[in-house]
Design a protein around this nucleic acid. Structure first.
Length: 847
RNA sequence: GCGGGCGUGGCGAAAUGGCAUACGCGGCAGGUUUAGGUCCUGUUGGUGGCGACACCGUGGGGGUUCGAAUCCCCCCGCCCGCACCA
């Protein structure tokens, strides 16, 4: 439908209200239209700047409300609308509570889509990127989150990425950024490498292409050095971050404890070390398995098995990730023609190669204990290798059943550790290995170092120069930023497996900063997750030129009080940001180790039970919704539909209901006739209590992020106020003004335009956002009487109006005196009476 | 397979040991209106009854308790994460 012209619709401010005092009904031909007031308040906010955070101390407490900054992929969509509506609530709440609030906005503006668009349109990624940013910025202004626009940043600005490079160099100095060769994930579509975190189920997280393995030399951040701290510091986030995010990070880091055991290899000087979480089963090891793609397998393979091994290895290298990932696939492998010697019993065991052992984990080799590990058992049964039980779990023989026994029990066939339980045996055997120098306790992680280099153009250049005589040479700080080369555009950026930057000869060729001879720049750019790992620090002092951030400002604002964003970043962005924060702590630049105190993951906006997508046409357009209903309605519908963490199916959302509610709010404001400042103490006591309750509960509910229930409380207050106007105290009662003002103040968090308008209609001048947060008079929260429920055998039989302070024995007497209770008892004796004054009495009859 | 979460009216959801279904949508009835829409009022878990009421009811079964949507055990269903990590 075509939206009415903006501003053409009138809304009632004081016009004639036909009121039928007999029925209490009111009719109206005109209805308040939230769209009509949007431009007016946008202009007022732009002029008054109520959302600008104050850098210097002004006595107010500081709060930092952060939303995950957007990628400028196009205009804002329903997902943004939900996330930013949710993130705006605490920011406005704190502001109205009188705090100095930092609520910034910026753009994560490096990344592949811009580059792909540039290739397609024969243009430069910056054109597409910055045009989209302007589109989103304009939409944001209308959508009206309480942003401090003065702190706006873009990660693709040289003023920003200068400091991304600076941080890279600090990491480099600390040995936390390094280059190494090895197997890497390669996306054949995007023509670039990917971090482990960006591979989901064997596919590229971004484009969905099947990821391949390649052997390449790449830049890494040594996040594994921080594995323990990343894991252990999560204890402090417990209860403040969603449990599932913590769980996902724990699983991702995947710490396991066990032991390294050295096996000698016949005909090899050096022993081979294996990692096991079950050193207690060492006597049950009947063979060893080496990862087929590990150099070790190639090295120790005996000549007579070489042909078989190489054939197998080629087969493995051809097989795709899909095959590797299929669950019920048969074990494969090949004997390497060698034997290893078990360090505790001197037993000779054959060494095999297989793809079920991963080259990158542990030492790329394992001791196989088929009786107590299902994978090893599958392998043993397939190739006829022996199975020896060493833990008596009381379960049937795995060799017979094909089911490995992983449980606890007494050790058997295990020499010095016979009879010990699992835990005791692990401790003892580790000691024995230690004494003999053939093993030691060990910890392993699933987490790998973070691969940060990318063979694409639109990212932050890696500030390193490669010199034939000096090797890797960091670009000196005073030569930062290393800007992206000019002149590359369109087809120049097409992916070709090496970085497009390499084609910019005049950019690549530079003198070595150290020795001055001809050298070449590193042509890779950084993963965009590097850019987003520190942007929230930059917000604290966005124009700062002495470093990535002003240490003093960060000390003032951080850590972030609430971070709002999607759960899709549960591992990637949030793990990297936690890592960066810990490194900055070690550098002495910040005095905290966790960046985000509280995390809220909003749900997704879906339609008809399925995710929205352009290709299927299952789409709701934010712009159309706003044109039809207005910003306030969209925001309120998002927030009212359910808990913020839950998905919203737009098919279940009722914008019309929200529209009706906002019109009711506006009309109440317009009907108030008492003057500003009228003393509410003289007003209707019932309505005053309703107001006090709504204020008190809404405050608690907003604080615990239960926005949908908070809105329900405001709705109840609106209904109570309507009743008071129509059939109670009347529009001139000061309690009605008090209620109407409270409604405007509370509603400001959820429907800011209507709240401002109502506030003005009530004769108030300051913007409502600066008018404070209402407080409830405790005296009004105490009820004059409460309803006590009287149960007989757990069923409600009567209700009594009693004072809240009623004594237990008095209440019991009243309850027993009730005719309804006596009737329900039917003459039966009383076994017991439970009294919870003043709410409930439960009488248990004898039976 | 392993781990975690969830299951409440026609629908989105409230209630975290004490009146189940707040609030909203949708429905129904009435009022206002030339009419429609808007707006206002009432009503709306099921079964039975003219009715006051009665009984049943939070996925299913069992348990703890004076009292369970809420806590415990088993089962069913759905969602999410991980998935050869030795």
């Amino acid at each position: 439908m075509a939206p009415p012209e903006r501003g053409a619709l009138s809304y009632r401010t004081s016009g004639p209200t036909k009121r039928d005092s007999e029925s209490g009904s009111v009719s109206s031909d005109e209805q308040y239209d939230p769209r009509a007031v949007q431009d007016k308040w946008q202009a007022r906010w732009a002029e008054l700047e109520p959302f600008t955070a104050v850098e210097t101390d002004d006595g107010r407490e500081r709060r930092y409300a952060l939303d995950m900054f957007p990628y400028p992929s196009g205009d804002l969509h329903m997902g943004h609308a939900e996330a930013f509506a949710i993130g705006d609530v605490p920011a406005r709440f704190w502001l109205q509570q009188g705090h100095n609030v930092l609520h910034p906005i910026g753009w994560d503006s490096f990344g592949l889509p811009a580059e792909n668009a540039a290739i397609k349109r024969d243009s430069h990624p910056a054109e597409w990127t910055y045009a989209n940013i302007e589109t989103q910025a304009a939409s944001f202004r209308r959508y009206a989150p309480s942003f401090d626009w003065s702190r706006r940043l873009h990660t693709s600005d040289p003023e920003y990425y200068r400091w991304t490079q600076w941080l890279f160099l600090r990491f480099y100095e600390r040995g936390l950024a390094y280059r190494k060769g090895g197997h890497v994930n390669w996306c054949p579509k995007d023509q670039t490498v990917l971090a482990n975190e960006q591979v989901v189920g064997g596919h590229c997280e971004r484009c969905g292409a099947l990821v391949e393995k390649r052997v390449l030399t790449q830049w890494y951040f040594k996040i594994t050095d921080y594995a323990d701290r990343l894991l252990d510091d999560m204890a402090g986030l417990e209860g403040h971050w969603p449990e599932r995010v913590l769980l996902m990070q724990r699983n991702w880091i995947g710490r396991s404890t066990g032991a390294d055991v050295d096996f000698t290899i016949e005909g090899r000087d050096e022993p081979v070390t294996v990692y096991t979480t079950r050193p207690d089963t060492l006597y049950g090891a009947t063979f060893m398995v080496v990862a087929a793609d590990a150099p070790l397998a190639d090295e120790i393979c005996a000549p007579e098995q070489r042909a078989a091994f190489e054939a197998y290895r080629d087969e493995v290298s051809r097989e795709s990730e899909i095959e590797r990932l299929s669950t019920e696939r048969e074990k494969t492998g090949v004997f390497l023609g060698r034997h290893a010697v078990n360090p505790v019993n001197g037993e000779r065991i054959p060494v095999w190669a297989s793809d079920y052992v991963l080259a990158e984990y542990g030492h790329g080799a394992i001791m196989a204990v088929p009786a107590h590990d299902q994978r090893d058992l599958d392998f043993a049964l397939k190739f006829g290798l022996p199975v020896r039980v060493v833990v008596d779990t009381g379960r049937p023989d795995p060799a017979e059943t094909g089911v490995a026994t992983a449980g606890d029990g007494a050790l058997v066939n295990s020499g010095p550790i016979d009879g010990l339980p699992k835990a005791g045996a692990i401790a003892r055997i580790t000691e024995i290995l230690d004494e003999r120098g053939t093993g030691r306790a060990s910890v392993n992680y699933r987490l790998r170092d973070w691969l940060v280099s990318r063979q694409r153009f639109w990212g932050c250049p890696i500030p390193i120069v490669h010199c034939e005589s000096c090797g890797e040479v960091p670009v000196p700080d005073d030569q930062l930023p290393v800007r992206l080369p000019e002149g590359l555009r369109g087809a120049d950026l097409a992916p070709k497996g090496t970085s497009p930057l390499a084609a910019a000869a005049d950019w690549v060729d530079v003198p070595c900063p150290k020795c001055g001879v001809a050298a070449k720049r590193d042509t890779d750019t950084m993963d965009t997750f590097v850019d987003s790992s520190w942007y929230y620090f930059r917000y604290c002092s966005p124009g700062y030129e002495g470093g990535p951030f002003d240490v003093e400002q960060v000390r003032r604002w951080m850590p972030v009080d609430q971070y709002t964003g999607g759960v899709e970043h549960a591992i990637l962005h949030l793990l990297y940001s936690r890592f960066f924060t810990k490194v900055l702590y070690d550098m002495g630049m910040v005095d905290f180790t966790e960046p985000f105190k509280r995390l809220l993951n909003q749900g997704q906006v879906i339609l008809n039970g399925a995710g929205m997508s352009k290709s299927t046409g299952n789409l709701v357009d934010l712009g159309e919704q706003i044109a039809e209903f207005g910003v306030d309605v969209v925001r309120l519908a998002m927030l009212f539909s359910g808990p913020p963490e839950d998905d919203i199916d737009w098919a279940d959302v009722s914008p019309h209901g929200m529209q009706k509610f906002l019109a009711r709010v506006h009309r109440i404001a317009s009907e108030v006739t008492s003057p500003v400042g009228a003393d509410p103490a003289t007003g209707d006591a019932t309505l005053r209590r309703a107001t006090a309750h709504a204020v008190s509960e809404a405050t608690t509910l907003v604080g615990s992020q239960r926005f949908n229930v908070a809105i329900a409380r405001i709705m109840e207050l609106v209904t109570a106020t309507r009743k008071a106007i129509d059939s109670g105290a009347g529009p001139a009662d000061p309690a009605v003004r008090e209620a109407a003002e409270a409604i405007a103040l509370l509603l400001s968090l959820f429907a800011p335009y209507t709240a401002e308008e109502a506030w003005e209609v009530l004769g108030r001048t300051a913007p409502v956002i600066t008018a404070g947060w209402p407080s409830a008079d405790p005296a009004l929260l105490v009820e004059e009487s409460v309803t006590c429920v009287v149960q007989v055998a757990g069923k409600v039989r009567d209700r009594l109006d009693v004072p809240p302070s009623v004594a237990a024995d008095e209440l019991e007497r009243l309850a027993l005196a009730s005719p309804k209770v006596q009737e329900a008892l039917g003459g039966a004796g009383i076994a017991k009476v439970i009294v919870r004054a003043p709410k409930i009495v439960n009488i248990v009859p004898q039976r």
